Simulated scan of single mutants.
Amino acid sequence: MGELDNKVALVTGAARGQGRSHCVALAEAGADIIAIDICADIDSIPYPLASKEDLAETARLVAEKGRRISTFAADVRQLADLEAAVSDGIGQLGEIDIVVANAGVVALGVTDPRNEQVYRDIVETNLFGAWNTIAATVPSIIRKGVGGSIVLTSSVQGLTGRGGDGSAAVFAYAASKHGLVGLMKSAANAYAENNIRVNTVHPTGVATPMILNENMAKMHAEGRLSTAMAGNLLPVPWVEPEDVSNAVMWLVSDKAKFITGVALPVDAGCVAM
């Protein structure tokens, strides 16, 4: 018997990185998965985003755990598209218990302080997308009537302003990740009467394609990475996706049944410096 048997979990940004790790961990604990990813690039974002093949690999890994999974290519910036995917997923797997709003982008190296498009794309993906995810999924949790857990993926940049360089890209990332804390606290208050818990996780750099890509390698080689933004207190350059999944799994479990409205760092001490 798994800790999450008979539960349905929805994960955005599910095709690779943290999202894939969360899907696999949730499935290993017994949950069936609704996995959503844009599966396309965004022009203003300077690294490749996940593909349909990446999402199919997530599905394969979940199936290996013996759980059901429904996958959808949908952009979290578009509420109607997200609602359609959620509706189809519920039709296949049942009402939702757990939501991990993980989809997010960054654009380090895009230094223009007036780049409206990159600012808009980052905020709309990271913050607007999380609100869309809540709006699309909470009615299902309420219908099921047994409570639930929502985890929003923020960042250490949702707890600190270190590393600000004046660029629209970095401003957008910090603003969106701070905004998630306000969204989380408001939602924790709004849905407490339905026994729905809402929390954020705040990773430092995570070893995923968001930071392990050609754009970031070029910035590192040119000495353009901000040590103020990247520095950890513990002697590690980053954490692994599974480290964040461990925190997510605790938050969605009965071990954290009275934990709501909390911003939980998974940061190797980054924000303590």
Rank of each mutant, 00 (worst) to 15 (best):
T125A: 08
L127I: 01
F128E: 05
A130H: 04
N132M: 03
I134F: 06
A135D: 10
A135L: 14
A136P: 09
T137W: 00
V138P: 02
V138N: 04
P139E: 05
S140T: 14
S140D: 09
S140P: 13
I141V: 15
I142H: 14
I142P: 08
R143I: 11
R143P: 04
R143K: 15
G145S: 01
G145E: 14
V146N: 14
V146G: 15
G148H: 04
G148W: 11
S149L: 13
I150N: 07
L152D: 06
T153F: 00
G158V: 08
L159H: 02
L159D: 01
L159G: 01
T160G: 07
G161Y: 07
G163P: 02
G163R: 01
G164R: 00
G164Q: 01
G164F: 10
G164L: 13
D165G: 04
D165Y: 06
A169G: 07
A169V: 02
Y173V: 05
A174N: 12
A174D: 11
A175Q: 06
A175D: 00
L180A: 02
L180I: 01
M184A: 11
A187R: 04
A187H: 03
A187Y: 00
A190P: 05
Y191V: 12
N194V: 13
N195M: 09
T200L: 07
H202G: 03
H202D: 08
P203S: 11
P203K: 08
G205R: 12
G205D: 08
V206P: 03
V206D: 11
T208M: 05
P209N: 13
P209Q: 11
M210V: 14
M210H: 13
I211Q: 10
I211Y: 11
N213C: 03
E214G: 07
E214N: 12
E214M: 05
N215Q: 14
A217G: 11
A217L: 05
M219C: 05
H220D: 15
A221H: 06
E222I: 00
G223W: 00
L225H: 05
S226P: 00
S226C: 03
A228Q: 07
A228T: 04
M229N: 03
G231A: 15
N232K: 10
N232I: 03
L233S: 13
P235Q: 06
P235T: 09
W238K: 13
P241R: 09
P241F: 10
E242K: 10
D243A: 15
D243C: 10
D243H: 14
V244P: 02
V244T: 10
A247E: 08
V248H: 01
M249Q: 15
M249K: 12
W250H: 09
W250R: 02
W250Y: 15
L251E: 07
S253F: 15
S253C: 14
D254T: 12
D254W: 13
K257C: 04
I259F: 09
I259P: 06
